[in-house]
């Protein structure tokens, strides 16, 4: 865009009267306050309703601890699995042309549109006592459904597309010129990926990982179907919140919920920081000669 005076001049045709403008802002802020800020604030006030002592006590329950440990374990397995898949899928889809590419991209998105409850159900049908592999698993004394492997599988399913969805458009917008240059200069495939591709995609990668992690730790519907709800053994934090809430232990339920809300806040904070960082790098690279491709911010897109 051109200089300031011209812009000022152009404004008359492309903006609203101040009254309309501030009414729209007020309406939007009111909506955001009612539907987003209030629910978030309610989590913390309900958790601290009976003071800090009750809050801390609720978190020191052995069942709460085992739920926290299980949630961390599940995320620690599910996120790296989807990270490796995300990088592979993005490399294959973004760097090459092949028949069926659009179809494959749609299939990668599929878990986003499947209800979490249905996602849990399909694993019960595969591995449950009456399922495909049920008799065989029982004969070999392997438990998948209503045990930790099932919880991990269901979590992997619902968080499946997160990292791939971040990386595919980002790597597509960057093209293959830099990698080709590296190969021509004698780099191996791994060196090219490590020194050329990875630095280019790092913000999208980190963003995908934190979103994937937030969803992995917070997944409720799919995990609820496969967990079996055994206290102290197969209860993740969201399931533990449900049990406490249904037992009318409101403060304890909100205490555990507030940890999950904190996780959400940290996720949002990291996201905002990275957006800022990404914009700064884009501005910096805009000063370079034009042959360096500049990607549009990948961060402000829709990834449920």
């Amino acid at each position: 865009m051109s200089g300031a005076p011209q812009r000022h001049h152009a404004r008359a045709g492309t903006t609203e009267p101040a009254g309309v403008k501030w009414s729209l802002i007020g309406l939007a802020l009111g909506f955001v306050f009612l539907f987003l800020a209030l629910p978030l604030a309610a989590v913390f006030t309900e958790a601290l309703r009976k003071g800090g002592g009750a809050f801390v006590q609720a978190l020191q329950e052995p069942d709460a601890w085992s739920a926290i440990r299980l949630t961390l374990w599940v995320a620690a397995v599910a996120v790296p699995l989807n990270l490796v898949f995300g990088v592979c899928a993005a490399w294959a889809i973004a760097k090459y042309e092949f028949a069926g590419k659009a179809f494959l991209t749609t299939l990668v998105d599929l878990p986003f549109s499947v209800s979490p409850v249905v996602a849990g159900l399909v694993y019960v049908l595969m591995f449950g006592a009456q399922g495909w592999l049920g008799p065989w698993l029982q004969a070999h004394d392997i438990k998948i459904v209503f045990a930790i492997p099932g919880i991990i599988l269901a979590t992997v399913f619902v968080t499946f597309p997160f990292i791939a969805r971040e990386l595919i458009p980002l790597m597509q917008s960057q093209g293959t010129e830099e990698e080709q240059a590296a190969m021509v200069l004698g780099a191996t495939g791994l060196q090219t990926f490590w020194y050329v591709t990875l630095p280019n995609i790092r913000w999208g990668l980190i963003y995908g990982v934190i979103l994937c992690n937030a969803r992995a730790m917070g997944e409720f519907g799919a995990v609820s179907v496969v967990s079996g709800h055994i206290r102290g053994q197969t209860n993740t934090m969201p399931l533990h919140v449900e049990i406490l809430y249904n037992e009318y232990q409101s403060v304890a339920a909100f205490a555990v919920a507030s940890l999950l809300a904190l996780l959400a806040l940290v996720t949002l904070a990291i996201k905002s920081l990275m957006e800022w960082q990404f914009d700064r790098e884009r501005l910096a690279s805009a000063d370079l000669p034009p042959e360096r491709p500049t990607a549009a911010s990948p961060l402000n897109r829709v990834t449920p």
Binding site: V43, L211, P238, A257, A264, L265
Partner: peptide
């Protein structure tokens, strides 16, 4: 996107 659905529900 970031807040677990169960937390949103009880809140």
């Amino acid at each position: 996107f970031a807040l677990p659905t169960a937390v949103a529900g009880i809140s």
